[in-house]
Amino acid sequence: MSDRLATKIEAILYLKGQPLSIAAIAEYAGCSKAKAQDALLELVADYAHRDSALEVVETPEGYSLQLRTTFQELMQNLIPPELGVGALRTLAAIALKGPISQTELVDLRGSGAYQQVQELVELGYIRKRRQADGRSYWLQVTEKFHQYFQIDRLPQLNGSTEN
């Protein structure tokens, strides 16, 4: 019944990258709190029975899609130590949608993106330049991002078919 709603809620939890209340989930999904609750319970049960690295958990702040604790050590080995998961998700959003306005990014990732953008600029992974109307900034990844993550070696991203 709510396969599509549960999938939509999964996408919302992934994109927001932070715990969300049932009310917030329902608002983003465009449904009632009761329908959001039912679909969320379905999603929690689905992840509980899946052989997946991810899980949906309830925290004091709300529901969150996160890496299972058994994979925390792997995450620490793979993610640059200076980047947290939230900043990494924000960086991924900028890389996939860039150039993107900071306003659009905050709509997509939440207000925590402001701090993450500042951190990513300081680390040299993104560049920020004021829009022509002066109201917001354009954000895009830098050459350091491409070098660090070796994006030029991923043929599906740059259109090349060579290895």
Rank of each mutant, 00 (worst) to 15 (best):
L67M: 10
G62T: 09
Y114C: 06
A48H: 03
L74E: 11
Y28M: 07
D38M: 12
E162F: 09
S21R: 06
D152N: 13
L20M: 08
G30S: 06
A95C: 10
R129V: 15
V85K: 04
Y114K: 14
L91W: 07
L13S: 00
S136P: 08
A92C: 08
V57K: 12
A29N: 01
P80M: 07
A53P: 09
Q150C: 11
V106F: 11
L91C: 04
T69A: 01
A87C: 09
Q118Y: 01
G112T: 04
E27R: 02
K16N: 01
A23V: 05
A34T: 10
Q156K: 02
E82Q: 10
G134Y: 15
S2E: 10
A26G: 13
I100Y: 06
I94E: 10
M1G: 14
I94P: 03
S64E: 09
V106M: 12
A23D: 12
I100A: 02
L41Q: 14
D38G: 01
A6K: 03
A36M: 07
Q115Y: 11
Q118F: 00
V56I: 12
G112A: 11
G124A: 06
T59V: 15
A87F: 04
A34P: 00
P81M: 05
F145K: 10
K16I: 00
K97S: 13
A92D: 00
A24W: 01
L154Q: 12
C31R: 06
I126V: 15
D107V: 04
L154S: 00
Y137E: 08
Y114H: 12
A93C: 10
Q156R: 00
A92R: 02
Y47W: 00
E82A: 05
L120E: 13
Q131L: 11
G110A: 13
I94C: 07
L65S: 04
A26E: 04
T161N: 15
D46T: 13
A39Q: 06
A95T: 03
Q72A: 13
P155M: 12
H146A: 15
T90I: 06
R130I: 14
Q72P: 01
A29R: 00
A11D: 07
D38W: 15
R50M: 01
E27D: 09
P81H: 06
Y47C: 04
T161W: 15
D133S: 10
V117E: 03
K144Q: 07
D133W: 06
Q118P: 01
A24C: 05
I151W: 08
A93P: 14
R4A: 14
E55T: 05
N158H: 13
A34Y: 09
S160T: 07
I151N: 05
E73F: 05
V44E: 04
R135F: 12
A95R: 02
N158K: 05
I22R: 10
R135D: 14
D107P: 00
A93K: 13
P60W: 15
G84V: 03
L120V: 14
Q102R: 14
Q72T: 08
K8L: 15
R153I: 02
Q156G: 01
R50T: 00
E104S: 11
K128P: 15
D51R: 04
A36C: 07
S136C: 04
Q115D: 06
I79Y: 12
L96F: 04
I151M: 09
L88W: 08
Y137R: 01
I79V: 11
R4E: 14
A39N: 12
Y14D: 02
T103R: 13
A53I: 13
E61F: 03
E61V: 02
F71S: 00
E42I: 07
